[in-house]
C-alpha cells in the first residue's frame, strides 16, 4: 500500500441522499477519492464508510474536516496511522480452457482464494485480502485473459477498536465534544 493513501472511516446517518452529499462534496472541492465502501454498521440507523484518499493529490485533512461538516456525518477518523486491518474483496472472471484450468486452480489455492463459478470457458474467482494480495493475484491471472473484474474497494478498521463511537485515528474534536 502506497504511503500516500489515507484511509478514512466515517460513521454516517442512514438517510436518503447521504452518499449524494458526500459525492457532491468530493466533486466540488476536487478531492481525489480512490474508493468508497459503504454498509450497515453495528448501530441502527448508522452506516460505516471506508474512504481511501490519495494524499499526494488531495489534502486529506481538508477531506476529513469537510466531511465532518456534513450534518449527516456523525464522525470521521483518519485511521491510516493506526494499526489497522484493511481488506478488499474482488470477483475475477478469467478465461479457462481444459488446458489452463488446473494451472489457474493451483494459483487460486496458493492465494487461498475461492472458485465461485465455473462455466465452459471461464472461472470466477473470489479473493479477499489487502490490495497487494488482490493485485498480485490479478497479475498472475492476467496471462490467461481476464473477462471481468469487480472490486469492492477497501474496508478497514483499527485493531482492537474499543466502542462503537470511539475508534482510533485522528478525529475532529468538533464531533467529540458535547455541544453546549
Amino acid at each position: 500500500m502506497a504511503a500516500t493513501k489515507h484511509t478514512l472511516v466515517a460513521l454516517v446517518e442512514d438517510k436518503p441522499g447521504v452518499l449524494n452529499r458526500m459525492a457532491s462534496l468530493f466533486r466540488r472541492r476536487g478531492f481525489n477519492i480512490e474508493s468508497i465502501a459503504v454498509g450497515h454498521s453495528e448501530l441502527p440507523h448508522l452506516s460505516r464508510m471506508t474512504i481511501v484518499v490519495d494524499g499526494a493529490t488531495t489534502m486529506v485533512e481538508q477531506v476529513r474536516k469537510q466531511l465532518d461538516k456534513v450534518v449527516d456525518v456523525v464522525k470521521v477518523s483518519d485511521i491510516s496511522g493506526d494499526d489497522m486491518i484493511a481488506r478488499e474483496l474482488a470477483l475475477i472472471k478469467v478465461y479457462a480452457t481444459s488446458a489452463t484450468r488446473s494451472e489457474i486452480i493451483e494459483i487460486v489455492d496458493i492465494f487461498r482464494a475461492n472458485i465461485v463459478d465455473v462455466s465452459p470457458d471461464s472461472l470466477t474467482i473470489e479473493v479477499t485480502g489487502d490490495e497487494d494480495k488482490v493485485n498480485s493475484l490479478l497479475n498472475l491471472l492476467r496471462g490467461f485473459g481476464i473477462k471481468e473484474i469487480t472490486r469492492t474497494g477497501r474496508v478497514a478498521m483499527s485493531r482492537g477498536t474499543p466502542g462503537p463511537l470511539a475508534g482510533g485515528g485522528r478525529t475532529s474534536r468538533a464531533k467529540e465534544r458535547k455541544s453546549s
Binding site: V70, V71, V74, A174, R177, K178, S179
Partner: peptide
Amino acid sequence: NLPGYKPTLEGH
C-alpha cells in the same frame, strides 16, 4: 437531536 452536528464553542 443531531448527532453529527456539535459545533465546538470553547477554544482548547
